[in-house]
Amino acid sequence: MYLEHVNLVASDIDSMLKFYRAVFPHWSIRSEGRGDWHGKPRRWVHFGDDTHYIAISDHGEGENRNLSGHQIGFAHFAYVTNNLSAVVMRLNKVGFTVSKQGSENPFRKNVYFIDPAGFEVEFVEYLSDVPSERNNDL
């Protein structure tokens, strides 16, 4: 079993694609369309590769959850990379900056970005193949 996709509701698909294209330069739009969602028109895209994608719809209203608060809701999601510096550089190049650094740890490096819809996305590079080291709380 594996996670196939996440479905993010935003207000601007093009700004979301700018962010995620920098993260995943090898991904493309797998499919897209228009429709109605509970009485409101929406555009949607599936951006990804052959096995994983992000579904993005543009019918969002209002602001995303306050990430520094204690509201119930989506906190963040994370992607593992073999080259964290390259991901950060690609995102910086298109105008996005690190929102917070991960904690110091000898077995991993991680950073957090906020995408254009306000979702927090973590990127982590593991420096160990040992699960107990990768997941420690040092």
Rank of each mutant, 00 (worst) to 15 (best):
K40V: 15
R34G: 09
V45H: 06
R43G: 01
F24K: 03
G39I: 01
R21G: 06
D50N: 06
R34F: 09
P25I: 03
S31I: 08
P41W: 08
R30M: 13
G48V: 02
I29E: 02
F24I: 00
G33R: 02
H26S: 14
F47L: 09
Y20F: 11
D49G: 03
D50A: 04
V45T: 06
H26P: 05
R21H: 08
P25Q: 05
D49S: 03
P25S: 00
K40A: 14
D49R: 08
H38S: 09
S28A: 13
R42S: 10
G35K: 06
R42W: 12
G39N: 06
I29C: 06
H38D: 13
G33A: 09
T51R: 14
Y20A: 00
P41Q: 14
A22R: 02
S31A: 14
S31V: 11
E32C: 07
P25Y: 00
W44H: 07
V23P: 00
G39V: 03
P25A: 07
W27K: 07
G33I: 06
D36F: 14
R42M: 15
D49I: 06
H46R: 12
H26L: 09
P41Y: 10
W44Y: 14
G39Y: 02
F47R: 00
R43D: 10
D50W: 09
K40R: 12
T51E: 13
W37R: 15
W37C: 11
V23I: 06
V45D: 04
H46A: 09
W44A: 00
T51F: 12
G48Q: 01
W27S: 07
G39H: 10
T51H: 14
T51I: 12
D36G: 11
W37H: 15
S31Y: 15
G48T: 01
K40Y: 12
H26T: 04
G48H: 00
R43W: 12
E32D: 07
R43C: 09
R43I: 05
G39Q: 02
D50R: 01
W27N: 07
V45N: 01
R34N: 14
K40S: 14
H46V: 06
A22F: 00
G35C: 03
H26C: 08
G39P: 04
D50K: 08
A22P: 01
G35V: 03
Y20L: 00
W27L: 05
F24N: 05
G33H: 03
D49E: 05
I29F: 04
R34C: 09
D36P: 10
G33C: 11
K40M: 14
F24E: 07
I29V: 06
I29T: 05
H38W: 12
